[in-house]
Simulated scan of single mutants.
Amino acid sequence: MTTPTKLDVPAATGLRAGCGCLSALVLFLLAAVAVVVFTGETTPGQKALILGLFVGVPLAVLAALWVVIVRRASTWVEGSTLVRRVAFRDRRIDLTAARADFRDPMLVIVDPATGTLRLPLRDARGAWLPAPQLRALADALDADPRHEPIVRGLRDLAGDPPR
């Protein structure tokens, strides 16, 4: 059993966009509730209850979703298997059975069993993944001779990444 190598790839774009859209919805709800509460004739207790239910609860749910979905997302390599965790689901891709394609700055992996996975080779700040992580990914892909050009490219990146 090989030691897993964690890859510092950011959360998927769809996850970040989904949280962003949900945040906009919560802010719109906050504005709508504020208009209703502060322009109508309500007592201070009713205002607090309305704000708590329609603003506090959605914000708490949004924060919990962010923690569970985005912060828990991670990717790692175990031998020739790539594992991507999102929320409570692990997606395992056998890189010897999958087809890989390099589309700068992304590695597109098509697995017949699980579908397509787009793996960014840059971290959240835009820098290339560290050399040991690129080498681990190259080693995982090296088991299949079809991936030779991609393996060579990843090892070149690990040696001297472009700016």
Results as ranks from 00 to 15, higher is better:
W128Y: 08
A131D: 07
L117P: 03
L154T: 04
L107P: 05
D160R: 05
L7D: 09
A98R: 08
A127M: 12
G79V: 07
R92I: 01
L141A: 10
Q46N: 12
V86W: 00
T2N: 12
P130I: 11
D160S: 13
R163V: 13
P145C: 13
D111K: 04
G126D: 04
E41Q: 11
D94N: 13
G40Y: 13
P130T: 04
Q46V: 14
L119I: 06
M1E: 13
V70M: 03
L62G: 02
W128R: 06
L134D: 09
L157N: 08
L53M: 13
F88R: 13
T5G: 04
F102L: 15
A97D: 14
L49S: 12
T116M: 12
T96E: 14
G56P: 05
A131N: 03
E41C: 01
F28W: 06
L59K: 00
V36S: 03
S74F: 09
G115R: 11
V26N: 01
A12H: 15
L129A: 08
C21S: 13
R118P: 01
G45D: 14
R135F: 09
Q133Y: 09
T2D: 13
T75N: 06
D111N: 11
S23Q: 12
I150P: 06
W76L: 06
A17P: 00
A100V: 12
W66H: 14
L119Y: 02
V67L: 10
T5R: 09
V35H: 11
L129Q: 01
I150Y: 08
A31Q: 02
F28M: 08
M106F: 08
V68S: 09
V108D: 04
G153E: 13
R118V: 10
